[in-house]
């Protein structure tokens, strides 16, 4: 019968129209600023720099190796490497970035910088409300604006942050063990070379 298909389609829309009053699942509209949909744990927006301890400047994990600057596809990262070294959070002498800028008007949120970073220093943020009145200066974030604490990282990506902490702890333990082994070996060598007369008091 001509018109049967149209009627069938109309029945479908009528069913959906009526259904939207009873089915909770179909009520998908959210009144945005007052009410928010929770973001996914894996969500990514723009990168930020992780720091440990309470001091954002001293605790930055970044050692200014500039791998992310080179690998960044749209080239939106600008790093100046320090001339001197200073101890990082683990007490190791490292370079640090004197400038670390990300132009988020150019950044395309691809996460390549996070993947290539060997120091777990740069991670993706989930903050998306970044509108600003200043087109150029306001969208160029410097290292102070980019620095976020490890606790913040744990808050936004708990699973990933826990994995990173385990990995860093392992690395640190390995480095410590290696340093200890090296120190022991050096000590043993020194001891073998010239036997100390009275070892007991050596550490005092």
């Amino acid at each position: 019968m001509l018109g049967e298909g149209i009627l069938k389609g109309m029945a479908e829309t009528a069913r959906n129209f009526a259904g939207s009053f009873v089915s909770k699942e179909r009520l998908t509209t959210v009144e945005y600023p007052e009410e928010r949909i929770p973001t996914f744990e894996n969500a990514r927006v723009f990168p930020f720099l992780v720091y440990d301890t309470n001091d954002w400047e001293a605790g930055l994990r970044c050692v200014a190796c500039q791998i992310c600057e080179k690998e960044c596809p749209p080239k939106c990262i600008y790093i100046d490497k320090s001339k001197d070294k200073k101890p990082d959070y683990a007490g190791k002498q490292q370079f640090y970035p004197t400038r670390f800028d990300i132009d988020i008007s150019v950044c395309m949120s691809c996460q390549i910088c996070v993947e290539v970073c060997p120091f777990e220093a740069i991670k993706m943020d989930t903050e998306f409300e970044l509108a600003t009145g200043d087109r150029f200066g306001g969208l160029l974030l410097d290292r102070k604006q980019l620095a976020k604490s490890n606790e913040y990282y744990h808050r936004i990506h708990p699973t990933e942050a826990a994995e990173v902490d385990v990995r860093l702890a392992e690395e640190k333990a390995k480095a410590n063990a290696k340093a200890k082994a090296a120190a022991d070996a050096a000590a043993a060598k020194a001891a073998a070379a010239k036997p100390a007369p009275h070892v007991e008091g050596a550490g005092d």
């Binding site: 600008y78 800028d101 132009d103 150029f136 200066g137 160029l140």
Partner: peptide, 13 residues
Amino acid sequence: DPDDFEYEPTAHD
């Protein structure tokens, strides 16, 4: 690239 861009004031050196 031809030198015909309209440069916008940005902060990049």
